[in-house]
Each structure stands twice: as C-alpha cells, then as structure tokens.
Amino acid sequence: MKRYEQNGFFLEIEPRRCKGCGVCVQSCPMNVLILNDAGKVEAKEIMRCVFCGICEQRCPDFAISVHKSV
C-alpha cells in the first residue's frame, strides 16, 4: 500500500490490485496520476491533488482511495 500525504489528506494506492486500466489517470481533473512502467497507477504530482475522490469513484479495482488524515 503506497501512501501520498498532503496538507491533512492522503491518497492510498494498492498497486497489487491495480490493473492499469487508466480510467483514474484520465479522470483526474488535476493530472496527478500516471501509469508507471509496471502499468500501475502512481501519484506523480501529489501537490496538485485536491482530494476530490473521482479516482476512487472510477476505480474498478479498489486500488486507489482518498482519506482525511486523522
């Protein structure tokens, strides 16, 4: 499980579950995500992330989620 922290929020990615469909990457309004050369999603520009959660809602594989760090 990969974790990307940013002002009170964090993004969690489970590469093992990601099937590299790219829907999250194309859906992200802030172009935060990319598919790495292993075909798995990665947060390249976490600073731009607004934690809107669209990636989590589009992901078919339970591989990416948005959280408020407690």
């Binding site: 969690e12 093992r16 579950r17 099937k19 809602q57 078919p60 594989d61 339970f62």
Partner: peptide
C-alpha cells in the same frame, strides 16, 4: 469511503478480482 470501512463487508483478501481492467462491475 475508505476501503478499511468496507473491509467489514468485503473479502479484501480475494482482491484483485476477476473482472477485466476498466470494467464497470468493480465500480458497481
């Protein structure tokens, strides 16, 4: 909804599931 909240309902140990990359079934 954080996945850990879903763990009470999902057999997360069975992920990744069988559906194809990009298939809507996982989202539903």
């Amino acid at each position: 909804m954080a996945y850990d909240l879903l763990e009470e309902y999902l057999r997360v140990e069975r992920l990744p599931h069988v559906w194809c990359p990009g298939c809507g079934h996982g989202v539903i």
